[in-house]
Amino acid sequence: MTAVLLSVLLAAQPRLLEPEVAAGVGVLATSYQTFGARLGEAALAPTVTARGVFSGFVVEGGALLSAPLVRGGTLLTTTFAARVGFSGERWAMVAGVVAQLAPEATPALVLLPSLRGQLSFGGAGLTLGVFDHLGLVPAHLSVDVGPFSNGAFSLGWVAPLGLIGSADLSLPRGLGLRVTAFAYRLNNVEAAMVLVAGTFGGAR
């Protein structure tokens, strides 16, 4: 029975997740008390992510450097993420860990679980993430639309109060452009990011 199941799962077939490399740069901001606050919490955030898919088994890795743009910003932080999982044709699940290293903070290293699950219903789908996007988004539930011939997009809710969206634009030779943005609020603390990345490989 197990062998049959494995053979079905591992058979060469289209996968929801495909190998991909993405690199980009974002502007990340946290805000406190909003209107009265300085926007001194903005940080520049170069990121790189990579995904390999081997007979359905998925390995993902990523790194983000958050460097404050102005004096008094959030601390310099380096984030690494590693997740493994599996992708079928209409579903995928990856789970792993996000390690956030901020040498000036105590504790310097914080580890977070990270999870992302996706379901596809043809031209649309759902994505559930916990500490997804390199640990920057607490939890989100998104609706994915596409892929179309020239790209895809998604829009979702970030817990407890916020939005996340992304748009993928397909370019020739397997290249693509992805814009991801989110903003959320918890009590009087807010965070937001806009990330523009170039991609190579299976976009979604």
Partner: peptide, 9 residues
């Protein structure tokens, strides 16, 4: 109280 890093946690 401000987050020390942009981490969601």
């Amino acid at each position: 109280f401000q987050p020390a890093t942009p981490s969601a946690l």
